[in-house]
Design a protein around this nucleic acid. Structure first.
Lengths: 241, 241
DNA sequence: TCATAAAATGAACCTGGTTCATAATTTGTA
DNA sequence: TACAAATTATGAACCAGGTTCATTTTATGA
């Protein structure tokens, strides 16, 4: 019976519309000014309809964070399937993240906020399950790259689990996003191009972890080449600046 | 004339009381549930009085973030004045941060939120100036340690500014705080003791930056010794767990 | 002791999250 | 196609919390 399926698809599409609109409104007016009524109006629906999709504002925020992560996962998957040395694939992840935040600049702030006990707790059980289920593949993907490298002899885990080792470059990336999106903080220290700096520091991090082959982080042209290669071979269809 | 001074001191003390109470309420009920009326009631003052100190809720949040940073600076200053090799002083900063978040677990979340355009913009001009002025010494302090190391031959800046190099361990620390305070995220990857992992990764990072002397991050007892030394010699009066 | 200024107060106003009785629409059946 | 039942959409109404400001209280100084 196609009617039911069509119905379901319409509902799913509307949910996507609501979330896309919410994301847009957050970008424009900030998380604090996000108003359920405005999301609904913007989409030409009544508030009540919005509440048929999301149990509360918090529920919507978790849903949005989960949806964003979905897109991030897609970028990571491209990197995983890229035919390249383990170190280059590992380096590809922060590059993917860089492209990701360009598209969803509010994501990490939102995520951090959404996983607060209060927000997390106010979301529906279903929504929370969905959020956790959505984030699992991402961790597994990264672990696969690390384990692959370990099997190859490119890196020595030295007693760490794959995820524990992966945490190192992951924190560099996450920390950078945080600082970049904190109005006025990096400006104060007059730093130029924090994202380029991030990629350089990730390379230093991988060196520090003993991930082979060694890469000279101060070699600007080599770094440019690596980035360009990723853009050409993995992210060719996504616009950069 | 002592009356005026006493008056000023009383006002300052009350402001501190309001901020301490706000911090406490945020810890208990989350940022989302922070209510101006509740802060006032808790302190046995009327809302109007609270608004004599803070132009708005956002203004209060910026003030709180600034106050917290003040305490962080104090911990950093202890590390700076510690008589130890540059690498140990650099390593002392993440350790200080670890102690800092134990006392103010909501700080980094708050800070990230407070520096959002919308919140930042809603604070009073005075408050913003105060916030920026308060954060400058922190950056300068870190830069002094890096430059000192460079002068000593402990590290080669390789074309970076001191702050740009310091960004590397700083992002590791910040990123870790983010993940630790994101409900359920690290649990999902069953990681134990993320802060210990953070310190290990900071050591790897410093190795990757070529900061001498080399430290073996997988040497657990050596890491323990370093941490213990800091706790004994720098943070002796602060309780740890 | 009293007039004036400064500070504190909290009821009242307004915005935005949430609910739910009502209206509109869809579905299934004759 | 017509109609009843079920499902879905609607937005006015309710409530919570940020903010204001007329009024009250307290402090100051002659």
């Amino acid at each position: 019976m196609g009617t039911r399926e069509r119905k379901q698809r319409e509902v799913a599409e509307r949910e996507q519309l609501f979330l896309d609109t919410a994301r847009e409104l957050i970008r424009e007016d900030g998380l604090l000014n996000l108003a359920m009524a405005r999301i609904a109006r913007q989409c030409d629906y009544a508030v009540g309809t919005l509440y048929q999709h999301f149990a509360s504002k918090e529920d919507l925020l978790i849903a949005l964070a989960t949806l964003n992560e979905q897109y991030r996962l897609e970028l990571f998957q491209r990197v995983e399937h890229w035919q390249a040395p383990s170190r280059d694939r590992m380096f590809g992840l922060p590059v993917a993240d860089m492209i990701f935040v360009r598209k969803y600049p509010e994501h990490f702030r939102l995520a951090q906020f959404a996983y607060t006990e209060v927000v997390w707790g106010a979301a529906s059980e279903t929504r929370r399950k969905q959020a956790l289920a959505g984030s699992r593949p991402l961790g597994e993907l990264v672990a696969r790259i690390v384990n692959d490298a370990a099997a190859n002899g490119d890196v020595d885990l030295k007693g760490l689990q794959a995820n524990e080792l992966a945490l190192a470059p992951w924190t560099v990336t996450l920390g950078t996003h945080n600082l970049v999106h904190a109005e006025g903080v990096l400006e104060q220290y007059n730093m130029r191009d924090p994202y380029r700096l991030m990629l350089r520091h990730v390379q230093s991090m991988l060196n520090g972890l003993g991930w082979k082959p060694y890469f000279d982080p101060s070699d600007d042209t080599a770094l440019d080449r690596k980035i360009k290669q990723l853009c050409d071979e993995v992210f060719h269809d996504l616009e950069h600046d």
